[in-house]
């Protein structure tokens, strides 16, 4: 395992109290694999990768749990030492990792000479090599970020992240704002990087079809916790947690015969309120009284689910395919 996240707790102090954005999340990243972190907005996936990278917002702090990278428990000093050199981050908006007033090439040279050990000459050669790696022409090094299209900026941001030869790449929604064809080209770049450089990756996304296309493993988060994790084929073909089943039903599929999308009624809970038991209970059509008391993580062969009714997962999965199962509250309550 290149990365182990163990019962991670990240708290944000806000005016309305403490928000437990990540509340006991555990998952692992095997060496050389691409792990997809999926869930709705506010489920804690971006906070989790920012915590691993050590770039939490000012009001955020690690309140518990640990992050182990290559066998070493991370603290502030090790995070600072490894950041960019061994663990790199591609942020949600590529524009925010590029400075508009410098050419993209000079920014790459800067990173390579100031943070890395390159001379200016070797940094220039390495910049050309990095551009080639992400499928950009060498002559575009002289361009400014605004001269790049959205897809090219994303490629440049990836080149920047790879500058110091990290072994783990954290990418936050790297293709979300892009058109499908460009999106596909970027996903193909990421896949070739994994294979050529033997990179390990964590890909944060809300798009399960991106996970299906690119990832080896998937970690499904809900309300700050991991509800299901395992190999992509297993989890998406035979989901065991009702939340994963709901997400799958709500997702458009170009090739399916079903011409109806089934929403999950309600919305995720307020994380500044004290919560007990399984957090999906208020939206779950399969919840039982015991579910509100506590939740248990079960499973084997790397496919784990945090549903108390995991033993009935096969029956529940069949029932979850029926849209009527999810229509308990068809009107949209505003609260």
């Amino acid at each position: 395992m290149i990365l182990e996240v163990d019962k991670l707790q990240i708290h944000y102090s806000t005016r309305s109290g403490v928000a437990r954005a990540v509340d006991g999340a555990s998952f692992v990243v095997p060496e050389g694999r691409i792990v997809g972190l999926v869930g709705e907005s506010g489920c804690g996936k971006t906070t989790a990768v920012r915590a691993i990278m050590g770039v939490l917002a000012e009001n955020g702090r690690q309140a518990g749990g640990r992050v182990v990278f290559k066998g070493q428990t991370m603290d502030e000093a090790t995070t600072r030492r490894l950041r960019w050199r061994d663990i790199a981050y591609v942020p949600q908006s590529a524009m925010s990792s590029l400075d508009p007033v410098y050419t993209v090439g000079s920014q790459l040279v800067e990173v390579l000479t100031k943070r890395g050990t390159h001379s200016r000459a070797s940094a220039r050669a390495r910049s050309a090599e990095l551009f080639d790696l992400v499928g950009l022409s060498e002559r575009r090094l002289a361009d400014y970020p605004h001269q790049f299209s959205g897809g090219m900026r994303q490629r440049a941001a990836i080149a920047m992240a790879l500058a110091l030869e990290p072994s783990l790449l954290l990418a936050d929604e790297p293709v979300t704002a892009l058109d499908v064809i460009v999106q596909r080209q970027i996903l193909d770049v990421l896949r070739s990087l994994q294979q050529r450089l033997h990179l390990s990756m964590v890909l944060v996304t809300h798009d399960i079809s991106v996970v299906a296309y690119l990832c080896d493993e998937v970690v499904v988060m809900y309300a700050g916790q991991v509800v299901e994790s395992g190999p992509v084929r297993e989890v998406l073909a035979r989901p065991r947690h009702p939340y994963t089943m709901g997400l799958r039903n709500a997702f458009p599929d170009l090739l399916s015969d079903a011409l109806e999308l089934v929403p999950i009624a309600g919305s995720p809970p307020d994380l500044s309120e004290p919560l007990s038991g399984c957090r999906f209970v208020p939206r779950c059509p399969f919840a039982q009284p015991a579910c509100s008391i506590d939740s248990v993580v079960t499973g084997s062969d790397g496919h784990r689910s945090a549903c108390r009714r995991d033993a009935e997962a096969d029956t529940i999965r069949t029932a979850a395919l029926d849209p009527r199962t999810w229509q308990r509250s068809s009107s949209f309550a505003m609260s």
């Binding site: 499908v180 064809i181 460009v182 596909r184 079809s209 799958r248 997702f251 170009l254 090739l255």
Partner: peptide
């Protein structure tokens, strides 16, 4: 159509038939 990702990992997608921007 070939570029649209699908949520089913068992559906292998054809490589993109076009290049460039």
């Amino acid at each position: 159509v070939a570029a649209v990702p699908v949520p089913d990992p068992d559906q292998s997608r054809a490589p993109l038939p076009i290049k460039g921007n």
